[in-house]
């Protein structure tokens, strides 16, 4: 059981909250106390839009303990539109539907449970965008 750690990471996990450097404008995820680009200390909390594209991915068939019930599932590197790359599970998608460059959006999902009596853990995953599956409405 790691209640303090899960509690500390709640905003980061629940709503993809990172930081943005007030000096150079760089975005960071996970959040940073000091900007790794300009070393500025004026960083502020920033909630990412959650929109991005799949940079690469893999399909997990042999899951670590606690993830067996989700097999097979997809773990992807997602390039967020702010220019930050995150690792996360994809959800609401069949492994054969996933493609590099696929537009995705962040959703909150269950990450797992700490047994029958422990915490239920929640965090960000990504899924194909609803209503705009090809990402055509994007400005980039």
């Amino acid at each position: 059981m790691d209640i303090p750690r899960n509690w500390r990471l709640r905003d980061q996990r629940y709503r993809l909250q990172g930081t943005r450097c007030a000096s150079c404008g760089a975005h960071h995820f996970p959040p940073r106390p000091v900007c790794p680009r300009c070393r500025g200390r004026h960083v502020e909390p920033y909630r990412f839009t959650g929109r991005g594209r799949v940079y690469s991915y893999t399909v997990v068939y042999q899951a670590p303990e606690g993830f067996e019930q989700y097999v097979p599932y997809v773990v992807a590197l997602v390039d967020l539109e702010e220019g930050v790359r995150v690792t996360a599970q994809l959800t609401d998608v069949d492994p054969e539907e996933v493609a590099i460059g696929m537009p995705v959006e962040m959703v909150l999902r269950k990450l797992g449970e700490e047994g029958e009596r422990g915490l239920i853990l929640y965090g960000y995953k990504f899924r194909p965008r609803i209503g705009d599956p090809k990402g055509e409405a994007e400005s980039d």
Binding site: Q69, Q89, R109
Partner: peptide, 13 residues
């Protein structure tokens, strides 16, 4: 519901 969905995740969306 998918295996990672419950009332919390659906309520949030």
């Amino acid at each position: 519901p998918g295996p990672d969905e419950d009332t919390v995740t659906m309520a949030v969306e």
